Simulated assay, not measured.
Amino acid sequence: MKERPAAKSEVKGNRKPQRRTQEERSQATRIQVCEATLETLYEIGYERTSTTIIAEKANVSRGALTHQFPTRNELIVAAFQHLIDSWAEVYPLADCYNVEHLTICEMIDAYWNNIFSNNRYIAALELMLAARQDNALGRSLRDVMEKWIKKRDAKTLMQLWGAVDRESDSLYFQLVLSVLRGIAVHQSFDQDESVAPRLLEMWKRIAHRIEEDPMREELITGKTSVS
């Protein structure tokens, strides 16, 4: 009896996996090293972070690391950019979610769950503090951060209030983020895991009351409106 020819799906299933291109392998290594950098920053801080420690954590050779990032500064900036890019892809910032409106409490929950509550945010704080330095690294980090802030603020202010140019809205948004930042820092050293969620709920109640206050603009800016 003549054997039937193998179906196309069977032939395809028996094929060996296609090897990744050099560019794909290089990109995978870069991501692996950037992730290891963020983990190291969280675990031991900026000052103690070295390329030797990062290479070991990323499970790559020093040669492979320096091939992708010739200097420590280039690696630090790339890791920060990698983190910022990941933030731009979360709810409600990514375009794919098509979020047209958020309440202040929805915004606080989204930012906390997708950005601030993660250990990677503490790594970001290490880099933000490093950005204060008046040197090439500081300037590069500030450049990455400023571009992110401009994009983030324009998107979220529009989602919250349908405008981006009101001083009171911008100040209020910065206040909201500052409190979330403080809760994130507190969470990083408080052994009582119940405290941060309670602080978050308390802040949402306060933020909601501010949002609903008919005198919100005067409360935030300190300017008295002229009737």
Rank of each mutant, 00 (worst) to 15 (best):
N59P: 02
W161R: 12
L125A: 06
E47I: 07
G63A: 13
V11Q: 13
I210N: 01
M215Q: 15
F173Y: 15
W161G: 09
D109M: 07
R19F: 08
A163W: 07
N114F: 04
Q174K: 15
Q18D: 05
G162N: 06
R181F: 11
A136L: 09
L171D: 08
M1P: 02
R152Q: 14
D143I: 01
M215V: 11
A110M: 02
A110I: 02
G138S: 02
L129K: 08
Y46A: 10
T40Y: 03
I76P: 00
R72G: 10
M128R: 09
V179E: 10
F173N: 14
D153E: 10
K12E: 14
I84W: 01
A110V: 00
I220Q: 03
L160N: 03
A163M: 10
L41Q: 01
N118R: 04
I53V: 11
G222N: 03
S86Y: 06
D192S: 12
E35Q: 12
L75N: 00
H208F: 13
I104Y: 04
A94M: 08
T52G: 10
M1A: 11
E211S: 12
V90L: 10
T224W: 10
S168Q: 11
D134P: 00
F189D: 13
M107D: 05
E10L: 14
R30M: 08
R216Y: 07
D190I: 07
A55P: 02
A207R: 06
T156W: 04
R62D: 08
L38G: 00
D85F: 08
M215P: 03
L125G: 06
S86N: 06
L127Y: 01
M215Y: 15
Q81P: 02
Q68T: 08
S26A: 09
T103Q: 07
E74H: 06
L200S: 14
S9T: 10
N135H: 07
P92W: 04
N98R: 13
S188C: 14
P197K: 13
N73R: 12
E146P: 00
E24S: 09
R120I: 00
T156D: 04
S178L: 12
K16C: 04
E193G: 15
L177Y: 04
L177D: 12
A207H: 02
A79M: 11
V144L: 09
R15C: 08
Q133H: 06
R181I: 10
R120T: 04
R120F: 00
K150N: 13
R139P: 02
E89W: 03
I206S: 14
I210T: 09
T29A: 11
L157S: 10
T37C: 08
I183E: 06
L177S: 15
Q32S: 05
M215E: 15
S194G: 15
A58R: 00
F116E: 00
R62V: 03
K223Q: 11
V179F: 10
I84Y: 02
S170R: 15
L157W: 04
A123G: 03
S117R: 06
